[in-house]
Simulated assay, not measured.
Amino acid sequence: MDAASFSGATPPSPPPSPAVDVVLPCLDEAGALPWVLARMPSGYRAIVVDNGSTDGSAELARSLGAVVVDEQARGFGAACHAGLSAATAPVVCFCDCDASLDPAELPYVADPVLAGDADLVLGRRRPATLGAWPPHARVANRVLARRLRARTGARLHDLGPMRAARREDLLGLGLADRRSGYPLEMVVRAAEAQWRIRETDVRYLPRTGRSKVTGTVRGTITAVRDMSAVLARV
């Protein structure tokens, strides 16, 4: 007989399962993590996927209560898929970990999925300041969104990184890209599966720290190349 039974005390209840898991791909985001994790809504569990950080991001995330997954294979898609594979909640969100998106707004994308009104919801980024979204990145996004509409018929204006869908359905899509084309492949495969795809506005804020993709012309070109390759392949 254990101590709790002997004393008549009620054993502690296990922690409640999260309603939503939030995958946060992370590469050297120690400056943003405290704000990002503090803004996580109740019932949402943060899964920080460390993709080779050298600034202590993984240790910091653990100390702040996040689940941390170490993904050694470099690439945005590799980090996203590792987080999806580690998730256990019925609905999974994806969100950038650089404070450019406010986790407090995650219910905007997750609620329609939780309610059964949509299968995939993307956050359409609305810049909060003039400098939040560099012109070269905005133009590239507009071109890719136009190509995606022509390819899938989905009425989307942004390949926004904040999004939500059901975990089992996402795994069933068989997403293969492990680079910057992962978000676009998700939409293409979802459209092919006749998912109900929606878009909702979210704020886009100036990121914290150095940008790896949209903040640089080189990073944007690489992302466009990866996404174009996905469109040609799938």
Rank of each mutant, 00 (worst) to 15 (best):
V224H: 03
C26M: 11
N141Q: 13
G181P: 04
A32C: 06
P90N: 11
D50A: 04
R179A: 15
D50V: 09
D226G: 12
V234F: 10
W35Q: 15
A104H: 09
Y44I: 01
E185V: 07
V213S: 13
K212E: 12
R74A: 14
A32P: 01
E29T: 09
V22F: 09
A154I: 03
A19G: 15
D102F: 07
L205P: 03
P127N: 08
M186C: 15
W133Y: 15
R62H: 08
A193E: 07
S42H: 13
R225H: 12
A73D: 14
G43C: 02
A229G: 15
I197E: 05
S228A: 15
D102W: 08
A73H: 12
R210W: 03
A79R: 03
E105R: 15
G153R: 04
L156S: 02
V217R: 13
L122K: 07
V91A: 11
R225T: 12
M186I: 00
D50I: 05
V69P: 08
L144M: 14
A66R: 10
S211Y: 02
G65H: 04
H157V: 11
S5I: 06
G123M: 08
T152Y: 07
P41L: 10
G83Q: 04
E185N: 10
T54V: 15
W133K: 01
